[in-house]
Amino acid sequence: MSTKKVHKAWAFATAAVVVPCVAAMPAEAAAMPFTDIKNSGSEAELYKAVSELYSQGIVFGTTSTTFSPYQNLTRGEAAYFLAEALKLETKNVVNPGFNDVPTSHKYYGHIAALAEKGIIQKGTNYNPDHFIKRSQMAKILTLGFNLQQATTLSAPFSDFTKDDNETNKNIQTLLDYGITQGTSATTFSPYTDVRRGQMVLFLYRTLQKAEDDFYIISVE
């Protein structure tokens, strides 16, 4: 496998798609109000990620003083986080027609914005209160940030899904970009729920890479 560095304007796939404007990371984040994440040890990166994304209005806590990083993330919350990270228009949006997402729903604008961009698929229901899976997370990040999708599966995961190669490619894409990793040396756990803290880390790492040059990973 070889790696070459390219300017970020060319690191995204699909020439016909304009890369969405993403939030720039501030030099210093505002003081974080959440007391359930430590700014040390194994939580140091998470603390920094939550602090910076919270200061930009991209993520929110479960209370005024707790973020609940180990609580599972709902599909509605995921839509909010991603739409805000991409700086999408969430007010003047086209109704995607989900039966379970009326215009009065608290995440309606964010869900509609993602549907309008083709980041999530339109259908009968969106299930905003269901937990988002790791495979679904890989899809919305790959599509949302127009990451160059992997063409070869190089990870040694025994749980790559056999009937959905598109999902496998999205998972491999995040691995190639260094946004996430497996749950073990041989598993990705695509149908495991994503936790709130994990999603923040994935978004933070992707936004950090958007500031700098991306790396295109090619397997030879």
Score class of each variant (00 low, 15 high):
Tyr80Leu: 14
Phe60Ala: 14
Thr142Gln: 02
Ala85Leu: 08
Ala112Gly: 05
Phe98Gly: 04
Ser51Met: 05
Gln56Leu: 15
Ser55Tyr: 05
Glu84Cys: 03
Glu43Val: 01
Asp129Asn: 13
Glu89Ala: 14
Tyr107Trp: 07
Glu89Lys: 15
Ile58Ala: 09
Thr62Gly: 09
Phe81Pro: 00
Leu86Asp: 12
Ala85Gly: 08
Lys48Cys: 00
Glu89Val: 12
Lys133Asp: 11
Ala78Phe: 13
Glu45Ile: 05
Leu53Ile: 10
Ala29Gln: 05
Leu147Asp: 02
Gln56Trp: 00
Thr63Asn: 04
Asn146Val: 04
Leu114His: 01
Leu147Met: 12
Phe81Cys: 00
Val101Ile: 14
Pro69Ile: 09
Thr103Arg: 06
Gln136Asp: 15
Thr124Leu: 13
Phe34Leu: 09
Ala30Val: 13
Gly41Phe: 04
Ser135Lys: 09
Ala112Glu: 04
Ile140Pro: 04
Thr14Ile: 08
Arg134Glu: 02
Gly97Cys: 09
Leu86Cys: 09
Ala23Leu: 13
Lys48Asn: 11
Leu73Thr: 13
Pro20Trp: 12
Gly118Ala: 03
Leu46Ser: 04
Pro128Tyr: 01
Ile111Gln: 10
Ser42Leu: 02
Thr90Trp: 08
Gly57Glu: 08
Thr63Gln: 01
Ala115Asn: 06
Ala23Pro: 00
Thr66Ala: 15
Asp36Thr: 03
Phe67Leu: 07
Ser64Asn: 07
Ala13Arg: 07
Thr124Lys: 15
His105Asn: 13
Leu46Thr: 04
Asn125Ile: 03
Leu114Trp: 01
Ala150Asn: 07
Glu43Gln: 15
Thr14Ser: 12
Asn72Leu: 07
Phe145Tyr: 14
Thr90Gly: 05
Ser42Lys: 09
Tyr126Thr: 06
Ala15Glu: 10
Ala44Arg: 12
Lys91Trp: 00
Glu45Asn: 11
Gln136Gly: 13
Asn39Val: 03
Lys91Leu: 05
Ala15Val: 14
Gly57Asn: 08
Thr151Asp: 10
His110Gly: 01
Tyr70Ser: 11
Asn125Pro: 00
Pro69Arg: 07
Phe34Ser: 05
Asp129Glu: 11
Ser42Gln: 07
Glu28Ala: 12
Tyr108Ser: 02
Ala150Cys: 08
Phe145Lys: 07
Gly76Asp: 02
Ile119Trp: 01
Phe81Val: 10
Ile119Thr: 03
Ala85Met: 09
Asn95Ala: 13
Asn127Ser: 14
Pro26Tyr: 08
Ala29Ser: 14
Ala78Trp: 00
Asp129Gln: 10
Gln56Lys: 15
Ile111Trp: 04
Tyr47Cys: 11
Tyr54Lys: 02
Ser135Met: 06
Ala27Ile: 05
Phe131Trp: 06
Tyr107Asn: 10
Leu82Asp: 02
Leu141Ser: 03
Ser104Glu: 12
Cys21Gln: 15
Val18Lys: 15
Tyr80Arg: 13
Gly76Val: 01
Asn146Met: 03
Ala79Phe: 09
Phe98Pro: 01
Ala29Thr: 02
Val19Tyr: 11
Phe12Asp: 07
Lys122Ala: 13
Val94Leu: 12
Thr124Val: 14
Pro96Ala: 12
Glu52Cys: 07
Tyr70Cys: 00
Leu147Phe: 10
Met32Leu: 15
Tyr126Asp: 10
Ser64Glu: 14
Glu89Trp: 11
Gly118Ile: 04
Leu143Val: 01
Ser135His: 01
Thr152Glu: 12
Phe98Glu: 01
Val22Phe: 02
Arg134His: 06
Ser104Lys: 12
Gln56Thr: 00
